[in-house]
Simulated scan of single mutants.
Amino acid sequence: MIENIFSTVTDPGAWSAVLRELIACTNSRSARLLVMNADATRVVSSIKENLDDNYHRQYTEYYVNACPWRPELQQKPPGRLYSTYLHFSCSQSDFLRSEFYNDWAGPQDIHHGVCGTIYRDSGRTVQLLVQRTGGQGHYTEQDTAYINHFVPHLHHAFQLSGQVADRCARAEAVALAAESETLPYFLLDNSLRVIHCNPGAEELLGVDTPLIFRDGHIGVADEVCNQRLQRLLKDCLAAAESRAFQTTGGSLDVPRTDGARLQLLVRPIHPDIPALTAKPAGYVVVYLYDPEAGIAVDPECLRRLYSLSEAELRVSIAMLATADPAEVAKRCFISLHTVRSHLKAIFAKTGSNSQADLMKRLLTGPARRR
Rank of each mutant, 00 (worst) to 15 (best):
V164Q: 14
A165M: 06
D166Q: 15
S180Q: 05
T182L: 09
T182E: 13
T182D: 12
Y185A: 13
Y185G: 04
F186R: 10
L187D: 10
L188V: 03
L188D: 11
S191M: 02
L192S: 11
V194T: 01
I195F: 14
I195D: 06
I195M: 07
H196K: 01
P199M: 02
G200T: 04
G200F: 08
A201N: 03
A201H: 05
E202W: 02
V207K: 09
T209S: 15
I212K: 09
D215Y: 04
G216L: 06
I218M: 13
G219E: 14
G219P: 07
V220P: 10
A221E: 15
E223F: 10
V224E: 08
N226K: 08
N226F: 02
N226D: 15
Q227H: 08
L229C: 04
R231I: 00
L233S: 07
L233T: 01
D235E: 15
C236T: 13
C236H: 08
L237C: 12
A238E: 11
A240M: 04
R243F: 04
A244Y: 12
A244C: 08
A244G: 02
F245M: 05
F245Q: 04
G249R: 03
S251F: 00
L252Y: 01
V254C: 09
P255E: 02
P255R: 05
P255F: 08
D258W: 04
G259W: 07
R261C: 03
L262Q: 13
L262W: 01
L262C: 09
L264C: 08
P268M: 02
D272C: 08
D272I: 14
